[in-house]
Amino acid sequence: MPEFNRGVALGAGAFLLWGFAALYWPFLSAAQPAEILAHRMVWSLLAMCVFLMLARRGWKWLPGVVRSPRRLLPVAAAAVLISLNWWGFIYSVSTEQTLQASLAYFINPLMAVCLGVVLFSERLRAAQWTAVVLGLLAVVVMAVGYGVTPWLALLMASSFAAYGAVKKYVDLDGMQSLTVETLVMFLPALGYVLYLEFSGAGTVVSVSPAHTALLVGSGFVTALPLLMFGVAARRLPLSVIGMLQYIAPTIMFFIGWLVQGEEMPPARWAGFALVWLALCVFAFDQVRGARARSAQRRRAENPAVEPCD
């Protein structure tokens, strides 16, 4: 499979998992969002250790990263940014504000596209610009539908767009980068978990075995899509990553509307329709571009034979 297609498949898979993750965190409602976030950080490191063992990657590469500030700082920045994003997402879905999480990830692709143009000089075709404008209009319509500035959505959108951009500066593969990210946040998170347990405010052993299992499982629910995203981010331009991200908020939209019963005024319906129109324009452009690239490859592999005199 070509690198571009593999990146699209991994990116789409990551956002599918993120979309359905909105159903996971409400099961942990006995814990506060900050405690859930700490457990995500702690158990994500365990998940990455398991993935490394399954992949037989080993740890010989790690000391070189830890001893090099130039290599470690971008990963540490990515860890902080994704932690902010995690907290916002947990808080929104745990308090039945999943539609605000959906709005966040509708905004985020636009931020990712803008960062791609500004930081990496990526160029968009006319159809891609059309999709971006439609997406921007959809976000404005949905924001008006809330009646207030959706600060939670803006926090999630900006932190994740910045996370995707910072990953471009990380000279590690997806598995190594995510392992270091979880390692950076492990000690602060573990310290907070222990503090909660010794103070009697923690829930890891005081609720139920199912609750404990879900807290442990949060590491794998967290690490797998992030691992897929990290690999995809290194294979795809930010403009493509930005458009793929519409998958997750679409799923969150249906969860918020159909499962959690959040209100759907006309403005939100209008915004959702505009988003789907933007997706159709982008998908058409992607299919047309793929066909053009395929035709170019066929011509390069089978050049026309010039007639002999």
Rank of each mutant, 00 (worst) to 15 (best):
P2D: 15
F4W: 06
R6L: 13
R6K: 13
G11V: 08
A14L: 08
A14I: 10
G19A: 09
G19N: 10
A21M: 12
L23D: 12
L37A: 15
A38Q: 08
L45M: 13
M48A: 14
L52W: 01
L54Q: 02
A55Y: 07
A55L: 13
R56Y: 11
W59L: 14
S68I: 10
V75M: 11
A76G: 13
A76Y: 05
V80L: 14
I82H: 03
I82D: 02
S92H: 01
S94A: 11
T95L: 04
A101L: 09
L103W: 06
I107V: 15
A112C: 02
L119E: 00
V132Q: 06
V141P: 07
A143W: 10
A143E: 09
T149A: 09
L154T: 07
S158M: 04
G164S: 10
L172I: 04
D173E: 06
S177H: 02
V180W: 08
E181M: 06
F186T: 06
F186N: 05
F186R: 09
P188Y: 14
L190Y: 01
L190R: 00
L190E: 10
Y192R: 03
V193K: 04
S199M: 14
S199H: 15
A201V: 04
A201E: 14
A201Q: 15
G202E: 11
G202P: 03
V205P: 00
L227Y: 15
L227Q: 06
A233L: 10
L238Y: 08
L238P: 09
V240D: 08
M243N: 13
Q245M: 11
A248V: 03
F253V: 05
P266Y: 04
R268G: 05
A270H: 12
G271P: 02
F272I: 06
L274S: 04
L279C: 14
C280G: 02
A283L: 10
F284D: 07
R288E: 05
A290G: 11
A290Y: 03
R291N: 02
R291Y: 02
R298Q: 13
R299G: 00
E301D: 12
P307E: 14
C308P: 02
